[in-house]
């Protein structure tokens, strides 16, 4: 097996005295999906921000295509082929689709003083690329804010793939979507894998992660609980690791209390705590 496409070792990130990430290692291979799982506050967002060049790590090694790298900006990461699709999609609601698609990497044409944004090319390309993902946009000038959640997600993914991403980092792409729309996004992830991209899929939903994942990393309170291949981990074991056995027990007893109609005040107290 060749070296991993992207590998980080012992990544640590401190925010003041808060340890957001504690010696976490992760790998992504070509044509594989690495799922990054964990509850809120587990450090998923911190890790992907390090991977995508937003935060410099406090400590840790970063290898891309076998070389040690130090990312100084998201722009640098993207130039290397590490593309991140954030939860908010980094789309501007008031901006037309074609402007959004090429934001930060605008194609230019003409020379010197007449150098300008090649809008004809941009509009044409946007239509073509979205058609490849099965979306027929009526008007590239349509502001993104007027589109549906699934459509916006697909614009963001299509954008990353178009710009030669080798690694695609997807931050909770299915979180805000209904069952049908989430299924479409999972299909895009499988498509990206088939095109030999390495995908890092962040989610807290085991049912979304398990079908498309080849490798699973579960984070908890800033630490990695483990790094498994699909063969080493069943879906049940994954759920167990994610929630923790004792927490499940507490939850079970809480749920029993909730089912008693006279226990409303107690429930309020528990949920607030």
């Amino acid at each position: 097996m060749a070296e991993p496409l992207l590998e980080v070792r012992n990544m640590t990130k401190l925010f003041g005295s808060v340890i957001a990430l504690n010696r976490v290692s992760a790998t992504v291979n070509r044509g594989e999906v690495t799922c990054l799982l964990g509850d809120n506050g587990a450090g998923k967002s911190t890790l992907i921000k390090i991977l995508s060049g937003v935060y410099p790590p406090t400590e840790g090694e970063y290898y891309f295509e076998g070389h040690a790298v130090t990312l100084r900006s998201p722009r640098e990461a993207r130039a290397m082929g590490i593309a991140t699709v954030y939860q908010d999609l980094s789309l501007l609601p008031l901006m037309p689709i074609w402007r959004n698609f090429f934001l930060g990497a605008e194609p230019e044409t003409g020379s010197l003083f007449l150098r300008h944004f090649d809008d004809k090319f941009a509009k044409l390309t946007v239509r073509e690329e979205l058609l490849k993902m099965g979306i027929d946009i009526r008007d590239p000038d349509q502001p993104v804010g007027t589109m549906s959640g699934g459509e916006r997600q697909s614009i963001a993914i299509a954008r990353a793939v178009y710009f030669g991403a080798k690694v695609l980092i997807l931050d909770e792409p299915t979180a805000a979507l209904g069952v049908k729309q989430a299924a479409i996004v999972l299909r895009y992830i499988a498509q990206a894998r088939a095109r030999n991209l390495g995908v890092i899929f962040i989610t807290h939903n085991p049912q979304h992660a398990y079908p498309v994942g080849d490798r699973f990393i579960i984070l908890k309170r800033g630490r990695a609980l483990g790094n498994w291949t699909k063969a080493e981990l069943s879906q049940e074991a994954m759920v167990q690791h994610m929630s923790g056995a004792e927490e499940l027990e507490i939850l079970t007893s809480e749920l029993q209390q909730i089912s008693r109609p006279d226990a409303e005040s107690q429930v309020a107290a528990t949920t607030n705590g």
């Binding site: 937003v54 900006s73 998201p74 402007r99 930060g104």
Partner: peptide, 20 residues
């Protein structure tokens, strides 16, 4: 390109930064 960036930093500076 710079014009596109002006719209972007005004619309959502965080999103603009995210895409470089």
């Amino acid at each position: 390109r710079f014009g596109n960036w002006i719209f972007a930093v005004g619309g959502d500076p965080q999103a603009a930064r995210n895409v470089g």
